[in-house]
């Protein structure tokens, strides 16, 4: 699927400081039965967000009206476990454009990038600064600047650079996805197959 373009975002944040937030928490398996990509927002953090009678859990951050925004802050090892891309879809579908953590699970990171959701990996100390700033002022604005690979606190100007490989950066800036690129390589793929089958037969 072609992805939405991303350049610069200034937004308040929703903090979820738990560590090891696995994809079963982001979206439990029983909600993976859809055959389309849409509508997963309802199931985001379902079992933390709603009790067994489907009543919102008042303590859970997404049910706390004091917090809102397009940036989700998570603790270390965000997105571990299952490869379900539905986890990234659910976060994006809910309205988040960026997830910030000090550490992402590999498959989740790929899935997020392929969905157009930007994973921003920061240092432990910077993550702590963000959590503290938001705890003190729920309206704290964080700026994500993809061209300069920079995340900053708008008020104080405290900032940090983040890594992203230049190919994926281009994809996000322009809204490209990988399939167009791979299809453009078809001739080389066919040549590779020919060489490989020749090697196998000899």
């Amino acid at each position: 699927m072609p992805i939405d373009k991303f350049e610069i975002l200034e937004s308040t944040c929703v903090p979820l400081p738990a560590e090891n937030i696995d994809t079963d928490q982001i979206i439990p398996a029983r909600f993976l039965k859809a055959i389309s990509r849409e509508g997963f927002a309802n199931y985001l953090f379902r079992d933390w967000r709603y009790d067994k009678n489907n009543k919102p859990v008042p303590d859970f951050i997404l049910n706390n009206t004091e917090y809102s925004g397009q940036i989700l802050l998570g603790g270390k090892n965000f997105g571990s476990g299952s490869s379900r891309e539905h986890a990234a879809w659910a976060i994006y579908d809910y309205g988040f454009k960026v997830v910030v953590s000090s550490f992402f699970a590999d498959i989740f990171k790929n899935n997020a990038l392929n969905t157009g959701l930007l994973p921003v990996q920061v240092t432990k100390s910077f993550l702590k600064i963000l959590f503290t700033a938001i705890e003190n002022d729920h309206g704290t604005i964080v700026k994500i600047d993809l061209p300069n690979q920079e995340i900053s606190l708008a008020a104080s100007g405290i900032k940090e650079n983040f890594e992203i490989n230049s190919y994926k950066k281009e994809c996000l800036l322009n809204g490209y996805d990988d399939i167009d690129y791979l299809i453009s390589l078809k001739r080389r793929i066919i040549d590779f197959e020919k060489i490989k089958s020749f090697e196998n037969e000899n």
């Binding site: 699927m1 490869s83 379900r84 891309e85 539905h86 990234a88 590999d106 498959i107 790929n110 899935n111 392929n114 969905t115 490989n165 190919y167 996805d177 990988d178 399939i179 690129y181 791979l182 299809i183 390589l185 078809k186 793929i189 197959e193």
Partner: peptide, 22 residues
């Protein structure tokens, strides 16, 4: 290795995936 659905689509379309070497 495990992949997400966008990568499943890549593999269906091209028998390739884009991966950074771990």
């Amino acid at each position: 290795f495990g992949i997400g659905t966008s990568e499943v689509e890549m593999a269906l379309a091209s028998q390739c995936v884009l991966q950074t070497k771990p």
